[in-house]
Design a protein around this nucleic acid. Structure first.
Length: 237
DNA sequence: AATGAGATCAACCGCCCAGAC
DNA sequence: AGTCTGGGCGGTTGATCTCAT
Protein backbone atom coordinates (compact mmCIF):
# COMPACT_ATOMS: atom_id res chain seq x y z
CA UNK A 1 0.00 0.00 0.00
CA UNK A 2 0.98 3.60 -0.45
CA UNK A 3 3.19 4.59 2.40
CA UNK A 4 2.91 8.26 3.17
CA UNK A 5 6.14 9.71 4.37
CA UNK A 6 6.21 10.98 7.93
CA UNK A 7 6.81 14.69 8.03
CA UNK A 8 9.64 16.03 10.13
CA UNK A 9 11.10 19.38 10.91
CA UNK A 10 9.53 22.72 11.72
CA UNK A 11 5.77 22.96 11.94
CA UNK A 12 3.84 25.29 9.71
CA UNK A 13 0.97 27.47 10.85
CA UNK A 14 -1.37 25.28 8.86
CA UNK A 15 -0.20 22.24 10.74
CA UNK A 16 -0.49 24.03 14.04
CA UNK A 17 -4.04 25.05 13.32
CA UNK A 18 -4.89 21.55 12.31
CA UNK A 19 -3.36 20.12 15.43
CA UNK A 20 -5.10 22.61 17.68
CA UNK A 21 -8.38 21.76 16.06
CA UNK A 22 -7.97 18.06 16.55
CA UNK A 23 -6.79 18.43 20.10
CA UNK A 24 -9.91 20.44 20.71
CA UNK A 25 -11.96 17.63 19.33
CA UNK A 26 -10.22 14.69 20.88
CA UNK A 27 -8.39 16.01 23.88
CA UNK A 28 -4.69 15.96 24.54
CA UNK A 29 -4.10 12.31 25.23
CA UNK A 30 -4.56 10.15 22.17
CA UNK A 31 -1.65 11.43 20.19
CA UNK A 32 -1.25 8.53 17.89
CA UNK A 33 -4.90 8.69 17.02
CA UNK A 34 -4.78 12.42 16.47
CA UNK A 35 -1.73 12.02 14.29
CA UNK A 36 -3.58 9.53 12.15
CA UNK A 37 -6.95 11.19 11.73
CA UNK A 38 -5.57 14.68 11.36
CA UNK A 39 -3.74 13.75 8.21
CA UNK A 40 -0.74 15.66 9.42
CA UNK A 41 1.68 12.89 8.51
CA UNK A 42 3.39 13.46 11.78
CA UNK A 43 4.04 10.95 14.50
CA UNK A 44 1.94 11.04 17.63
CA UNK A 45 5.01 11.94 19.56
CA UNK A 46 5.71 14.83 17.31
CA UNK A 47 2.17 16.09 17.73
CA UNK A 48 2.35 15.77 21.46
CA UNK A 49 5.66 17.59 21.59
CA UNK A 50 4.39 20.42 19.46
CA UNK A 51 1.33 20.76 21.62
CA UNK A 52 3.11 20.55 24.94
CA UNK A 53 5.98 22.83 24.04
CA UNK A 54 4.32 25.32 21.81
CA UNK A 55 0.59 25.23 21.24
CA UNK A 56 -0.75 24.44 24.66
CA UNK A 57 -2.62 27.39 26.10
CA UNK A 58 -1.08 29.07 29.07
CA UNK A 59 2.51 28.93 27.95
CA UNK A 60 4.34 32.08 28.87
CA UNK A 61 6.82 32.02 26.03
CA UNK A 62 8.90 34.83 27.34
CA UNK A 63 12.16 35.01 29.11
CA UNK A 64 12.38 33.51 32.54
CA UNK A 65 11.92 35.92 35.40
CA UNK A 66 14.55 36.07 38.11
CA UNK A 67 12.08 34.36 40.42
CA UNK A 68 11.58 31.55 37.98
CA UNK A 69 15.29 31.18 37.47
CA UNK A 70 15.83 31.00 41.17
CA UNK A 71 13.14 28.37 41.47
CA UNK A 72 14.67 26.32 38.69
CA UNK A 73 18.00 26.39 40.42
CA UNK A 74 16.48 25.38 43.70
CA UNK A 75 14.41 22.60 42.25
CA UNK A 76 17.23 21.30 40.14
CA UNK A 77 19.34 21.23 43.24
CA UNK A 78 16.61 19.20 44.85
CA UNK A 79 15.55 16.89 42.04
CA UNK A 80 18.32 16.93 39.48
CA UNK A 81 17.42 16.66 35.81
CA UNK A 82 13.79 15.88 36.40
CA UNK A 83 12.71 18.54 33.98
CA UNK A 84 9.08 17.64 33.71
CA UNK A 85 8.80 17.56 37.45
CA UNK A 86 10.46 20.93 37.75
CA UNK A 87 8.26 22.27 34.98
CA UNK A 88 5.16 21.36 36.93
CA UNK A 89 6.24 23.79 39.58
CA UNK A 90 6.61 26.56 37.04
CA UNK A 91 3.22 27.36 35.55
CA UNK A 92 3.42 28.16 31.89
CA UNK A 93 6.87 26.67 31.45
CA UNK A 94 7.68 23.48 29.63
CA UNK A 95 10.25 20.90 30.50
CA UNK A 96 11.96 21.65 27.23
CA UNK A 97 12.17 25.31 28.07
CA UNK A 98 13.64 24.62 31.47
CA UNK A 99 16.01 22.09 30.03
CA UNK A 100 17.22 24.64 27.52
CA UNK A 101 17.54 27.26 30.19
CA UNK A 102 19.57 24.96 32.37
CA UNK A 103 21.83 24.10 29.51
CA UNK A 104 22.47 27.77 28.82
CA UNK A 105 22.94 28.39 32.49
CA UNK A 106 25.53 25.66 32.97
CA UNK A 107 27.37 26.83 29.91
CA UNK A 108 27.47 30.38 31.15
CA UNK A 109 28.55 29.19 34.52
CA UNK A 110 31.37 27.18 33.02
CA UNK A 111 32.47 30.15 30.99
CA UNK A 112 32.27 32.47 33.94
CA UNK A 113 34.44 30.07 35.86
CA UNK A 114 36.95 30.00 33.07
CA UNK A 115 37.03 33.75 32.73
CA UNK A 116 36.91 34.15 36.46
CA UNK A 117 40.12 32.26 36.71
CA UNK A 118 41.62 34.82 34.38
CA UNK A 119 39.95 37.89 35.87
CA UNK A 120 38.66 37.34 39.43
CA UNK A 121 36.64 40.55 39.34
CA UNK A 122 33.85 38.90 37.39
CA UNK A 123 34.01 35.52 39.01
CA UNK A 124 31.12 36.05 41.38
CA UNK A 125 28.49 36.33 38.71
CA UNK A 126 26.66 33.09 38.30
CA UNK A 127 23.30 33.04 36.70
CA UNK A 128 21.58 32.71 40.04
CA UNK A 129 23.41 35.54 41.68
CA UNK A 130 23.18 37.70 38.61
CA UNK A 131 19.49 37.19 38.28
CA UNK A 132 18.93 40.87 38.85
CA UNK A 133 20.79 41.55 35.64
CA UNK A 134 18.21 39.68 33.70
CA UNK A 135 15.74 42.02 32.06
CA UNK A 136 12.19 41.73 33.21
CA UNK A 137 9.54 40.55 30.81
CA UNK A 138 8.36 44.14 30.34
CA UNK A 139 11.69 45.29 29.11
CA UNK A 140 12.20 42.44 26.74
CA UNK A 141 12.29 43.00 23.03
CA UNK A 142 9.13 42.40 21.10
CA UNK A 143 10.34 39.05 19.99
CA UNK A 144 10.06 37.67 23.49
CA UNK A 145 6.67 39.06 24.18
CA UNK A 146 3.75 36.69 24.12
CA UNK A 147 2.32 36.29 20.71
CA UNK A 148 4.89 38.26 18.81
CA UNK A 149 6.99 36.54 16.25
CA UNK A 150 5.16 33.46 17.27
CA UNK A 151 5.98 31.74 14.08
CA UNK A 152 9.51 32.80 13.66
CA UNK A 153 10.47 29.26 12.99
CA UNK A 154 7.27 28.23 11.36
CA UNK A 155 7.82 30.02 8.13
CA UNK A 156 8.33 33.41 6.59
CA UNK A 157 5.91 36.22 7.09
CA UNK A 158 3.56 36.84 9.95
CA UNK A 159 0.25 35.12 10.28
CA UNK A 160 -1.88 35.18 13.36
CA UNK A 161 -0.43 34.06 16.64
CA UNK A 162 -1.74 31.20 18.69
CA UNK A 163 -2.82 33.78 21.19
CA UNK A 164 -5.08 35.26 18.58
CA UNK A 165 -6.36 31.86 17.69
CA UNK A 166 -7.08 30.86 21.24
CA UNK A 167 -8.68 34.16 21.94
CA UNK A 168 -10.85 33.81 18.91
CA UNK A 169 -11.83 30.28 19.80
CA UNK A 170 -12.64 31.29 23.30
CA UNK A 171 -14.67 34.32 22.43
CA UNK A 172 -16.60 32.58 19.71
CA UNK A 173 -17.47 29.51 21.68
CA UNK A 174 -17.51 30.47 25.29
CA UNK A 175 -21.23 30.00 25.33
CA UNK A 176 -21.31 26.73 23.55
CA UNK A 177 -18.69 24.49 25.08
CA UNK A 178 -17.82 24.21 28.71
CA UNK A 179 -14.33 22.96 29.32
CA UNK A 180 -14.07 19.72 31.17
CA UNK A 181 -13.30 20.50 34.77
CA UNK A 182 -9.77 19.68 35.72
CA UNK A 183 -8.71 19.04 32.18
CA UNK A 184 -5.82 21.40 32.65
CA UNK A 185 -3.76 22.60 35.52
CA UNK A 186 -4.94 25.83 37.02
CA UNK A 187 -2.45 28.24 35.55
CA UNK A 188 -3.20 31.89 35.86
CA UNK A 189 -4.60 31.82 32.41
CA UNK A 190 -8.10 31.51 31.09
CA UNK A 191 -8.21 28.39 29.03
CA UNK A 192 -10.14 28.15 25.89
CA UNK A 193 -12.52 25.25 25.86
CA UNK A 194 -11.05 21.99 24.74
CA UNK A 195 -13.22 18.97 24.48
CA UNK A 196 -11.88 16.18 26.61
CA UNK A 197 -13.82 13.11 25.66
CA UNK A 198 -11.49 10.93 27.62
CA UNK A 199 -12.68 12.39 30.81
CA UNK A 200 -16.19 13.07 29.82
CA UNK A 201 -16.88 9.64 28.42
CA UNK A 202 -14.65 7.67 30.66
CA UNK A 203 -13.06 4.88 28.66
CA UNK A 204 -15.47 5.92 26.01
CA UNK A 205 -16.10 4.40 22.66
CA UNK A 206 -14.67 7.43 20.99
CA UNK A 207 -11.18 6.08 21.37
CA UNK A 208 -12.16 2.79 19.95
CA UNK A 209 -13.11 4.14 16.62
CA UNK A 210 -10.78 3.44 13.80
CA UNK A 211 -9.24 5.75 11.34
CA UNK A 212 -12.25 5.65 9.06
CA UNK A 213 -14.55 6.79 11.80
CA UNK A 214 -12.11 9.46 12.66
CA UNK A 215 -12.44 10.91 9.20
CA UNK A 216 -15.95 11.87 10.12
CA UNK A 217 -14.56 14.27 12.63
CA UNK A 218 -12.29 15.75 10.06
CA UNK A 219 -15.24 17.41 8.42
CA UNK A 220 -16.31 18.74 11.78
CA UNK A 221 -12.94 20.19 12.37
CA UNK A 222 -12.90 21.69 8.92
CA UNK A 223 -15.52 24.10 10.15
CA UNK A 224 -13.10 25.13 12.79
CA UNK A 225 -10.26 25.55 10.35
CA UNK A 226 -12.32 27.56 7.96
CA UNK A 227 -12.60 30.18 10.66
CA UNK A 228 -8.96 30.86 10.20
CA UNK A 229 -8.75 31.15 6.51
CA UNK A 230 -7.50 34.66 6.93
CA UNK A 231 -4.57 33.33 8.79
CA UNK A 232 -4.20 30.64 6.22
CA UNK A 233 -3.87 33.25 3.55
CA UNK A 234 -0.51 34.11 4.97
CA UNK A 235 0.68 30.56 5.00
CA UNK A 236 3.85 30.03 3.17
CA UNK A 237 2.85 26.82 1.64
C1' DA B 1 28.14 45.99 5.68
C1' DA B 2 29.96 41.46 6.12
C1' DT B 3 31.12 37.71 8.81
C1' DG B 4 32.10 34.63 12.48
C1' DA B 5 31.11 33.06 17.20
C1' DG B 6 28.08 32.28 20.65
C1' DA B 7 23.34 31.89 22.37
C1' DT B 8 18.79 30.31 21.96
C1' DC B 9 15.11 27.41 20.76
C1' DA B 10 12.40 23.86 18.35
C1' DA B 11 12.31 19.30 17.31
C1' DC B 12 13.93 14.46 17.03
C1' DC B 13 15.72 10.17 19.13
C1' DG B 14 15.85 6.43 22.14
C1' DC B 15 14.64 4.49 26.39
C1' DC B 16 11.40 3.37 29.93
C1' DC B 17 6.98 2.66 32.01
C1' DA B 18 2.10 1.85 32.34
C1' DG B 19 -2.01 0.19 30.61
C1' DA B 20 -4.50 -2.69 27.30
C1' DC B 21 -5.15 -6.98 25.36
C1' DA C 1 1.47 -13.79 33.03
C1' DG C 2 3.42 -12.21 28.98
C1' DT C 3 3.42 -9.20 25.03
C1' DC C 4 2.39 -5.13 22.61
C1' DT C 5 1.52 -0.31 22.06
C1' DG C 6 1.33 4.42 23.16
C1' DG C 7 2.75 8.13 25.99
C1' DG C 8 6.15 10.51 28.75
C1' DC C 9 10.75 11.85 29.74
C1' DG C 10 15.58 13.16 29.37
C1' DG C 11 19.30 13.79 26.18
C1' DT C 12 20.93 15.61 22.01
C1' DT C 13 21.16 17.97 17.65
C1' DG C 14 20.63 21.34 14.16
C1' DA C 15 18.69 25.64 12.51
C1' DT C 16 18.11 30.32 13.43
C1' DC C 17 19.00 34.54 15.71
C1' DT C 18 21.93 38.05 17.95
C1' DC C 19 25.88 40.41 18.83
C1' DA C 20 30.62 41.63 18.55
C1' DT C 21 34.39 42.54 15.56
Amino acid sequence: MAHEEIRKGPWTEQEDLQLVGFVRLFGDRRWDFIAKVSGLNRTGKSCRLRWVNYLQPGLKRRKMTPQEEQLVLELHNKWGNRWSRIARKLPGRTDNEIKNYWRTYTRKKAQTKKRGAASPASSSSTCASSASNIPSADTLPIRDAMGESFYDTGGPGKGCSMEDIWEDIFSSEENSIIPAAGSYPSYDYVYPPIASPTWELGTGNLWKMDEEDGKMFESQSNQFFSSYENCGASFSG
